[in-house]
Design a protein around this nucleic acid. Structure first.
Lengths: 243, 243, 243, 243
DNA sequence: CATGAATGAGCCTTCATTCAT
DNA sequence: TATGAATGAAGGCTCATTCAT
C-alpha cells in the first residue's frame, strides 16, 4: 500500500513548518541558539520526528537556505517580466532584491553560516546543490537582461568588459548596502541604518557611468520603481511596508 | 624584580601567535569550530596559558579583529597621503582596500562571525571599542577625501545626496566584489574567482556616473593605481603579488 | 501516547536514588566533593541523564534538603497529635526530633552547606521555597503547643518573654546536642558521642526553669516518651533502634 | 648564619597577614570564593610566597581556625577569672561566648568546612590538633566552674547527671541561638534575627531548672553581665558594640 | 511512524600547585 | 628566597544523535 497522497501532503507541510520554526530561531538567536530541542519543542513534535525529515542540524540550515533561495529566484524571475525598456527591467530586478532583503533578512546570515562551517559535509548534498542553482538563476536573470540591452543597443560593452562584470557591480551595490545596514546597527550608528535612498541613487550613478540608456537624467527611474512595486510585487510590497 | 624583558617579549610574541592560530581555525572551521582546546593543542601550550592572555573565547575573536582592523586603518591613512588630485587619492584608498583584501582575506569573514554572535558581552570592551574605532577611521578617510573634492570643485553633491552615500557606494563595490570572490570559490565557479578587473572598471563607472572629475575618459586611473602601488605600498604590493 | 506508567515510575524512583547518592557524597565529602560526575558514575547513568532530573548541582542539593525537610515536618505534625497534656505533647515533638536526627543524620550538615553557598540562585525556586515552608511548619508546631499551654494555664509567659523564645530554647538544645555529637565524633571524643541522655535531662531542666507544669518532679516524662515512641512512632522507633 | 630575629619576626607577621586576608575572603565569599590567587593579589605577594608559609589551601583554612580558636580559648579563660559566685562566673563565660560570636562570626562556618571536607588530610596536622586543643580548653573552663559550684554546694548533681551534661546544655543554647540568627537571616525572618534577649533568658531558665544557686529570682544576672563586660572585656565589648 | 529518555563527547572556564628563573 | 608563568586535572553544563518502546 503506497503512502496515501494525504499522508504525503501532511509530511511536506510539516517539513515546511520545521523550516519556518528553525528559521525563526536562527534569526532570533543565531546559529548557536538554534537547537534541535527548541525546534521540537516549538513544533510540538518529538526530536525523533525532526530527524525523520532532516539528517542533521546542518541539513535543517541548508533547508532554510533552500527555501529562501528559491523564493529569491522566483522574485527575480518575476521581475524580469516587467514591461519596459531593458534598464527599467533591471530596475525591477533591483526592486526584487530590495523586497527580498526586507522580507528575508536572515538569508544573508544563513548563507554565511552555511559556507563558514563545514555544514556542507553534513547536509544533504541535494539541498546544497539546489541552493547553488537558485543563485545561478538569479545571476542569470541579471545577465540575461544585460544581453537584451546589448542586443537592443541600449548599452555598449567595451572591449575587455563583460555583462557579468556589470551585473556584479549592481549586485555588489545591493549586497554592500544591506551589509552596511547590519553593520550600522551593530555600530549603533544611526546614519548607516537606512541605506535605501543612497542605494537607489548609487545604482543610477553606476548605470549612468556604464552608459546604459536611457540615462537617469532622461528617465524617471523612481517612477519605474513605483510601477514595478505596483504591477509585479503588490503583495510583497505591502508585506514589506513599501506599498 | 619585574619579569625580564626577554620574557615579556616572548609573551607578546605568543599572544600574536595565539591570534594567528585562532584566526586559522576561525577561517577554516567557523566560529563554532574555533575552540580553546584546539588553539591550545595547536599552540602546544596548555589551555590555562591561553587564558592568561585572553579572558574568554570571545576575547580571542575580538583580538583577531582588532589586529587586522588596525592594519586596515593604517593602510587607508597611508593611502590618503598619496599625491594627486582628489579622485586619484580615492583611487589610492581603493588600492589600500585591494591590498587589505589580498593580504587579510579572513577579516571580512571574522567580522561577520563576530557580529552574528554576542561577542561584545564577553570580550574585553577595550578591544571591541578599538575595532569600532578602526572602522570609523577608515570611513573617515574616504569621506575626508570626498569633502576635499567638493571643496576643490571636482565633484558636485546634488541636493539630497551626501558624501557618505558616495563613500558607501564605493565601499559596497569593494565589499561586494570580494564577497563575490569567496562566494565564487564556494560555488566553484571559476569566472567569479577573479573579480579584480571588473571591480576596478565598475568603480570607475560609478565615479564617472557621479561626475567626479577628471572622468575616467580624461585620466588614466590604471596608471595612477600603478603609481600608488609603487609609491605608497611597495612592500604590501610585493607581498600580495601585485608588484 | 504519553510515557508509559512503568517508565514514569522508574523515573521517579531514579530521582530518589539520585538524591540518595548525592546525599551520601555530600555527607562524606562536603559540598565541594559533591560533583555531578561522581553522582553519574555512582548511579551508572550518564551526566546528561542526571541533568534531565535536576537543572543544576545546586538543584540537587535543594532536592536533598526538600526530601528530609518534608519528612521532618510530617514527623513534627504527627507528634502534635499525641494525647496528653501540653508539656507531654511537646515531649512528643522532642521524640520526633530525636527520631529525625537518628534517621536523617545528614540533614543538619546539608542544611549548613546549603546556606554557606549561594544555592538559592541556581536551584529551582520551588524547591527552596518548599524547604523554607517545611521549617516554618516545624516551628509552627512547637509554638502552637506552647500557645495551647498558655491558654490552658500550664505555663505563664512573663512580660517581655514570648513563646517563640521558649521554642527557640528547646530547638537550640536539640540542635546543639546533635551538633555536639558530630563534633565529638570529629574530635574522636567518646564521651560526647552519645548526647541523648544529657539532652533529655537538659530539656526537662529547661522546661522546669520555665515553670511548665506539670514539672519533671511531678510527672514521669520518660514514661511519656516511651508512650510516644510506642503510640505515634512505632515504625520509626524500630528503624532507629529505639523501640 | 642563622636567620636573623628580624627576619623571623617579619615572617611571622606575614603569616598573620595571610591568615587575616584569607579570613576576609572566606567570610565575604565563602570557601569557594577563597582562592590562592586572591590571597596573593590582596597581599601583594606572589602565590609562591604563600606556599612557603602554608602547604595547601586547606592549611590556610586550618590556620584561620587555629587563630580564632585560640582567641576564643583565651576569652573563656579570662572569663573564668571573673570575681563572683560560681553561677556569675559561668555567666561571664557566656559573655565571652557572646563576644566571640559577635567578633568572629566566621568561626562557626570555617569549623564546618574544616570538618566537612577532607581538609584535615591536606592541612598540617599540628594545626588541626591545635584547633581541637583550643576547643577542649573552652569546654574545660565551663566544666571547671561547674565542679567549683558542686564543691561549693551551689549546685547539686543528681545521680546519672554530670557536669559535662550541664555544660553541654549551656553550650547548646548558645550555639543554637547563633545558628538561629544565621538561619533567620537566610529565611529573611526578622523575628529570628536578634536572638540575644531570648538566649539570655533561656540560659537563666535552664540554670534555674538545674537549681544552680542563687536562682535568677534571687540575683540580678543582667547586672552581673554588665559588670563582666565592664571589668573583663571592656575592649571587646566596645568593638562588638555592646559597651 | 512517533517518541523522548539516554548518551557521551565536547565546550568553556577555574585554580591549586609546581618550578625555572 | 621570591616570583609568576605554566600546567592540567577537574568541574558544570549542553546538545546532536540514537534507539528501545
Amino acid at each position: 500500500m503506497p503512502t496515501s497522497a494525504r499522508k504525503q501532503r501532511e509530511i511536506a507541510e510539516r517539513e515546511e513548518r520545521i523550516v519556518d520554526v528553525a528559521l525563526g530561531l536562527l534569526v532570533e538567536q543565531g546559529y548557536i541558539g538554534l537547537t534541535m530541542d527548541k525546534i521540537a519543542a516549538e513544533m510540538e513534535y518529538s526530536k525523533g520526528t525532526i530527524y525523520q525529515h532532516f539528517k542533521s542540524k546542518e541539513d535543517v540550515v541548508a533547508a532554510i537556505l533552500s527555501a529562501s533561495g528559491e523564493i529569491r529566484a522566483k522574485l527575480f524571475e518575476r521581475a524580469a517580466t516587467f514591461e519596459g525598456h531593458s534598464r527599467e527591467r533591471m530596475g525591477a530586478v533591483g526592486v526584487a532584491a530590495e523586497l527580498f532583503y526586507a522580507l528575508y533578512p536572515h538569508h544573508e546570515q544563513a548563507e554565511n553560516l552555511v559556507r563558514a562551517h563545514s555544514i556542507r559535509e553534513k547536509a544533504d548534498s541535494k539541498r546544497t546543490e539546489f541552493c547553488a542553482a537558485c543563485e545561478f538563476r538569479c545571476f542569470g536573470v541579471a545577465t540575461g537582461i544585460l544581453r537584451d540591452a546589448v542586443a537592443g543597443g541600449e548599452i555598449e560593452i567595451a572591449p575587455g568588459q563583460t555583462v557579468e562584470q556589470i551585473a556584479s557591480g549592481l549586485w555588489s551595490l545591493y549586497v554592500g548596502a544591506f551589509k552596511l545596514r547590519d553593520h550600522g546597527r551593530f555600530l549603533e550608528d544611526e546614519y548607516l541604518s537606512d541605506p535605501l535612498p543612497g542605494l537607489l541613487r548609487n545604482a543610477q550613478m553606476f548605470l549612468d557611468g556604464c552608459g546604459w540608456k536611457p540615462l537617469s537624467t532622461e528617465h524617471d527611474y523612481l517612477a519605474s520603481r513605483e510601477r514595478a512595486l505596483r504591477e509585479i510585487f503588490p503583495d510583497e510590497a505591502r508585506r514589506a511596508g513599501l506599498a
